[in-house]
Design a protein around this nucleic acid. Structure first.
Length: 749
DNA sequence: GGTTGGAAACTTTTT
DNA sequence: GTTTCCAACC
């Protein structure tokens, strides 16, 4: 058996380890997935462990899918090895036993939007002024409490004395009560309700302990307290727990990840074996040196130094630009240049940034340069309005208790059921302690509803019809039927706007996903865990737990744009790490935070970014950047300053590639190039004005001037400011306006 | 009950 | 700069 041939000694040791706790500290690119898959293969093949007894947990579906695939490649089918994410593992357990702690097993899962809706209603109900107490704050606090396994009651006890926290406790309690009455769980609940189940019903815990005799956890540095407890409970009987992680890549503290879980593993499991994987197989020496220099500045880490047998490669490049436009343009042109060279494909390149908002500039430039690209993240596909609408129909059909879904679609498309009537029904429902849909059935008896009751009756019948069809329809057929009967797509078609077209395209995409789901699971005999659950239920569940990154496929030939967080676990030959500016990355919040750990987390994020690169890495930044409409002047990121000069190729922002290519372009001006030049002119003119400060004005007080948007008017006042003139104009049509001369481009008439 | 315009919030990262 | 939300009108 050549299981060990391709492994280095440390990897071998990790694979060979059989029973007892094992901590694998795996540096970036050190082949941890390979170790995990080999370990699973060895347990089954050499140690005769029943695949049924193995549980492998990851954070994303993508990681889970990859691992399953790789194990299958080694062993053939591994149908019964349980490889899945924390969240879907918990859902599978809860679908089976959650009735033991008072929920229905057909519970729905609320996403972030749903949570926000509930919080809003709670605030209204408790008469909390959301101008003073922000909804977001409540949600964060509740999520943090759940991460720590603190329930509403315990929370209320803990916060005595502090008014703000007491409000939070009130909101928490009401929020949780509403979720329960809707038979819904939020993401955090999935974990903590599973823990609660295990603690309250020892028999269930025991059965899973028996089943999962060997547990492997990936990305262990990102586990929070609740997840840690979950794993500990499961592993406490056989203690065959193998965790893999890298404290230097812990970047989810904001989400409750507790870096202590990995740093203290040896205390929690004193007999743990610890193995370090320090050989990197991914990057060149230059890239690795850079990464080591950056992360070296962090305190409180398990010391390790990555090394590689790979060649030095090219030095890491660093460039600073005047503004974000030039930065994006440089990246676009550099990528275009690489394509002409023939050595690289689009798919080899990735642009990584700190915040999603940065993607727009790159998107614009890539469009103009005809560079195929894909943006990962931003608005999750399943969070889009049209998708949520369709899914709300499906949820209503599947789970009558999901109030949120029912209320979402009761008037979509318009049925003449307005907010007032909905309010009456809801009051009725709350007063009687029944669900919203249940109340709807009695609509004609509810005071204040009046004739709308008839329309509500119609809606109830509609849903009933769908329900009976759902018994024998595939998911795709059901969605199509909903769209046809309700006229949802027709309404969009009638709009005829670009936006409506995009929504229709998204719905088509959803139909495709439904079709492939039907194909994959439709014919399948319902097996153990899933028995008694309809295809529709399972579809909704799958859809509730996917992240945008999960749909990311490596092969297609397009440049990928994503946040540093999304990029974790991925690798690319050519990486552009953009926006390396103090205030953006590290973020302003982390710089001004009292807790130095916040800055360390940003530095780890930077480390993650650098180590995504296999062959070439370019760091860029801009001197001035538009943030929320106004200009910020940023210094070069301190992380770049951490890197010794001699390790970087620094180039000042002289735009030589552009000049070099000009002549060629002039000869062969295509339509798109003209369009691009026009766009460039449009974009850059205001920038020039800004720099030039409009020294002289060709109009004065009392002159008549013309404005592009406001029309004609009379100049009332001109005030000289620091670097511009503030002009007050009395317009004929729109009245008095104040504006800056360099932006307003007023014309004397 | 629906439409529209203006104000306000947002931008750190997400299963 | 963009999106979301709410109030005032139709």
């Amino acid at each position: 058996m050549d299981l060990y041939d391709s492994l280095n000694p440390q990897q071998c040791e990790a694979v060979r380890h059989f029973e007892g706790p094992l901590l694998i500290l795996a540096g970036a690119g050190s082949g941890k997935t390979r170790v995990l898959t080999h370990r699973i293969a060895r347990l089954i093949e050499e140690k005769g462990v029943n695949p049924w007894n193995i549980l492998a947990i990851t954070f994303t579906n993508k990681a889970a899918g990859e691992m399953r695939e790789r194990v299958e490649q080694m062993l053939g089918s591994v149908g019964s090895v349980w490889v899945s994410t924390f969240h879907s593992t918990c859902v599978r357990i809860l679908r089976r036993y959650i009735d033991l702690i008072g929920y229905g097993t057909n519970f729905t899962i609320y996403d972030g939007d749903d949570q926000k809706t509930v919080i809003k209603e709670v605030c209204k109900h408790l008469q909390i002024d959301t101008k003073i107490f922000r909804e977001r704050g409540f949600l964060n606090a509740i999520s943090a409490a759940k991460d720590e396994l603190v329930g509403p009651e315990e929370y209320a006890q803990k916060v005595e004395g502090d008014l703000r926290l007491q409000k939070t406790a009130q909101v928490y309690r009401e929020y949780q009560a509403r979720l329960k009455s809707s038979n819904a769980l939020d993401f955090d609940d999935l974990i903590c309700k599973t823990v609660e189940l295990f603690q309250r019903v020892p028999e269930v815990l025991e059965s899973y302990q028996e089943r999962f005799r060997f547990i492997l956890v990936d990305e262990y540095q990102d586990t929070n307290m609740a997840q840690f407890r979950l794993v500990s409970l499961l592993a406490s009987k056989y203690r065959n727990l193998c965790v893999v992680g890298d404290d230097d890549q812990s970047i989810y503290k904001f989400r409750g990840a507790n870096i202590g879980n990995i740093l203290n593993f040896e205390e929690d499991f004193p007999d743990a074996k610890v193995i370090r994987l320090e050989q990197n197989y991914r990057s060149t020496q230059s890239i690795l040196d850079t990464a080591n220099e950056v992360i070296r500045h962090n305190e409180g880490r398990k010391s390790k130094t990555l090394w590689t047998a790979n060649p030095d490669g090219e030095k890491v490049k660093f460039r600073q630009f005047m503004n974000g436009f030039e930065e994006a343009e440089y990246v676009a042109e550099t990528i275009a240049g690489k394509m002409r060279g023939g050595e690289w494909k689009y798919g080899d390149c990735a642009v990584l940034y700190r915040t999603n908002a940065q993607s727009r500039l790159f998107e614009e430039k890539f469009l103009l340069a005809n560079i195929p690209y894909k943006i990962v993240g931003g608005v999750n596909f399943y969070a889009r309005k049209e998708i949520k609408d369709v899914l709300a129909y499906l949820k209503t059909i599947a789970n009558a208790e999901d109030d949120l879904a029912v209320r979402r679609i009761i008037n979509v498309p318009k049925r003449g059921i307005g907010a007032a009537s909905i309010g009456h029904v809801q009051e009725y429902a709350i007063a009687r302690g029944i669900g919203f849909f249940e109340a709807l059935k009695n609509a004609d008896k509810i005071p204040g509803v009046g004739r709308t009751g008839l329309k509500m009756r119609g809606f109830v019948d509609l849903i009933r019809t769908f329900r009976s069809k759902a018994e024998f329809f595939t998911v795709k057929e059901l969605i199509e039927d909903v769209l046809n009967v309700t006229g949802y797509v027709k309404e969009l078609e009638a709009e005829g706007t670009e936006e409506a077209d995009e929504r229709i395209a998204n719905i088509d995409e959803l139909l495709n996903k439904a079709a492939s789901f039907d194909e994959e699971f439709g014919g399948e005999e319902e097996s153990g865990e899933q028995s008694g659950r309809s295809l529709l239920d399972r579809f909704l569940e799958e859809v509730a737990l996917v992240a945008d990154i999960d749909d990311f496929v490596e092969n297609p030939d397009h440049v990928v744009l994503m946040t540093l967080h999304s990029a974790k676990g991925l690798e690319f030959p050519v990486v552009f790490l953009v926006g390396m500016e103090d205030g953006l990355f590290p973020s302003y919040l982390s710089i001004s935070s009292e807790d130095p750990m916040d800055l360390e987390e940003e530095r780890r994020l930077c480390y993650v970014g650098i180590t995504r690169a296999k062959r070439e890495l370019t760091l860029t930044c801009a001197r001035q950047r538009m943030v929320r409409g106004d200009v910020h002047y940023n210094r070069v990121s301190r992380f770049v300053e951490d890197i010794p000069d001699e390790m970087l190729v620094k180039q000042e922002s002289a735009p030589e590639p552009r000049q070099a290519e000009r002549p060629a372009r002039a000869q062969n001006q295509t339509a798109y190039q003209q369009a691009r030049d026009a766009f460039r002119a449009k974009v850059f003119v205001p920038q020039q004005f800004q720099v030039k400060k409009a020294r002289t004005l060709d109009y004065g007080v009392d002159d008549r001037v013309r404005h592009v948007k406001f029309g004609d008017g009379i100049v009332k006042d001109i005030v000289e400011g620091g670097r511009d003139y503030e002009v007050t104009v009395e317009f004929d049509r729109v009245g008095q306006k104040k504006m800056f001369a360099s932006f307003a481009k007023l014309e004397k008439i």
